[in-house]
Design a binder for these strands. Structure first.
Lengths: 374, 374
DNA sequence: AATTGTAAGCGCTTACAATT
DNA sequence: AATTGTAAGCGCTTACAATT
């Protein structure tokens, strides 16, 4: 299929780039003059004679001149690039992995929209959480490779540890959704996980639920974000005088088994809270499989799953964290730090938003507190 | 919420970077020696005395030296960066837009995995198709800003025209999924749209369908990729002696109306082919709404929707194009061009794969031809 | 011959000097 | 005073010269 080099017309060597020197020479001025004029900054341009400005601009246009952005950044010590480290989801064709890309995409979009307005470009590195050290080296290299700063979607303890070291060496790093929250009093953008839990609890309480079930993964160690969510709903359960029990489902590659479903089928619960997006969808699915109808005979509140609903399924009432808002906030901080020539800021909590769905009604008064960012 | 600058510890100025000169000085050698040794290339290192090598490495480690990748690329004229232009899906909270990020993510992943092995980093620019000229300038600037090359997810005719101009100026550009296929005999990675259509047709024919319906958008102009898919299935219908009619659904922001559904409800069809991913999902949804059960009383073949199925819905039998394969192929070509110091190659067709689902059976013999790339 | 340094240069920016 | 050029420098690489 590939036929490169066969036909002569595919053998054309790539032309040498047009440089500022070419433009200057053709316009009969020095490179300094050309540079100043092409900078586009009025304070520079106005000190040249109009016909000189014209000459230079014409020459640049004529030759198709484009500044080399890498060279341009060197003298000013203000690189036009920042790093964005996101997750790669292996080559696995798992449907959940595939969808998770949408979160990363929104994070990227949030950051990039702001960056563009500052003339900043993102260099994207991906890290596959399953491949501990493989692709990480390349990401590390670029984070410390002379960029203006880095926004890193944290992935695992070793990476977070390295990031903290680099941060205190003076690299401008903003961490997004760290796992070990308590280690990040500085430079992190964190979802308000406690509020996620209490919000879910308030929804279940408002629906008069009395027998709450918390759906989580069966794992030895529970990560801090989930712990906080659990604490949030536990507190609310206590206040609401509801019973509170835990249901475990297997982590992503696996699907819930009949044994997992049995617990649900006993109908001990009238309200469920699923800790994350995949759990939420799996819980909805599991309920339907055992004949439960969330929204009718049981309430279900999920997390980050408002975008998830399949056509014939009820939409899940969801406590959402806006990934694009997180991306934007991270970028905002990076820009601020850069302007201030600093590298530390106090970590920021992002408030979740309640996205009403069919699986649990949302009282009017809870709909108002949708905002949360500065 | 943000408290930057308040506590004194957030006021630490970012430290100046450690440069090669620092490392060299501390090791008592010239920058040339330090550079050669830290290049990591055996042919350079072996010509130095072992203790010199040690001195330099220790000094670099001691000072926490990281090479500035932008400066490093200048002298060699082999920049370590390429551009990847993908789509941005506005701020719209449309569920389809949200999911479409997953495609862009897979495209990115495909390219980046290969790039990493060559030490290449992607600079990502996004273009919002709805904002014609707004963000485009920034993307154009970086594409011609001194990178090794660019992979561009084509978006619209004006952009494609500009890309073709730049290509013939000598910029290394690989276009992905162009709209105006016939304008891209060179430097494009294109889905084999004709084969998508004929594959769908063969599936419907194999299911003994006789009254085929083609589901497309109602628009004045039909874009070339869709035209080819239509031609593919039309040809197959003729060969199979099936009738062939068109059903129109409204484009993405809108949902199918009752009037749109009426056509389906008349049950004139026993086989449907939906032209793209959004149409496929909408068609499945529409069928269910009028009481049709795809897979039982009607066959449905979609495009790029195998990952889409909601829990309680049948999975759609889909003709898929692997976006990560497309990304990988584009990257492969870029690397090849760079090695050969060329900038043109013959456009490459990517064969689709048949992903069996519940809405239309797939004969054994059609499952084999899953591969397609070099 | 083995080992290292000198120097030029990548493409740009900007302070400052020099010219009219 | 208005206009432009000179020169140094950003941080690096690599051909080549120079030293032992």
């Amino acid at each position: 299929m590939l036929d490169s080099g066969a036909a002569p017309k595919f053998n054309r060597p790539s032309m040498p780039r047009v440089t500022l020197a070419h433009v200057a020479e053709r316009a009969g001025v020095s490179t300094a003059t050309a540079s100043l004029i092409l900078s586009g900054r009025e304070e520079y341009i106005k000190q040249f004679r109009p016909d000189t400005v014209e000459k230079v601009r014409r020459s640049a246009k004529r030759l198709g001149y484009r500044a080399n952005l890498f060279a341009a950044g060197l003298p000013t010590k203000a690189p036009a690039f920042f790093v964005l480290v996101i997750r790669d989801f292996g080559g696995r064709q798992d449907i959940h992995d595939w969808h998770l890309w949408a979160f990363e995409g929104n994070l990227l979009a949030g950051a990039v929209r702001l960056a563009a307005s500052e003339g900043l470009y993102p260099i994207v590195a991906t890290i596959n959480p399953d491949a501990p050290d493989a692709g990480v080296a390349s990401a590390k290299r670029i984070v410390t490779g002379g960029v203006m700063g880095a926004i890193v979607r944290a992935q695992n303890p070793p990476l977070e540890k390295w990031l903290r070291e680099q941060l205190h060496l003076g690299y401008r790093i903003v961490v997004v959704f760290p796992d070990q929250i308590s280690n990040w009093p500085q430079n992190a953008i964190i979802a308000d996980n406690l509020l996620i839990g209490t919000s879910a609890g308030r929804l279940l309480a408002a629906s008069q639920c009395k027998r709450w079930g918390l759906v989580r993964y069966k794992q030895r160690t529970t990560r801090e974000p989930h712990q906080l969510r659990i604490r949030g709903i536990e507190d609310t359960a206590r206040q609401a005088g509801a019973s509170f029990e835990v249901i475990c489902l297997p982590p992503p590659p696996q699907k819930p088994t009949d044994r997992d479903l049995a617990r649900l089928a006993k109908r001990d619960f009238d309200g469920l809270f699923a800790l994350d997006s995949v759990l939420s969808v799996n819980t909805l699915q599991a309920c339907r499989r055992v004949g439960l109808k969330p929204g009718e005979d049981i309430s279900l509140v999920g997390v980050n799953c408002s975008q998830w609903h399949g056509p014939a399924m009820p939409s899940i009432t969801s406590i959402d964290v806006s990934w694009s808002e997180v991306g934007r906030t991270a970028m905002q901080q990076l820009i601020q730090l850069s302007h201030d020539h600093q590298y530390l800021f106090e970590s920021i909590l992002i408030k979740p938003q309640i996205a009403p769905g069919a699986t649990c009604p949302v009282p009017e008064e809870m709909l108002s507190d949708k905002t949360g960012s500065a």
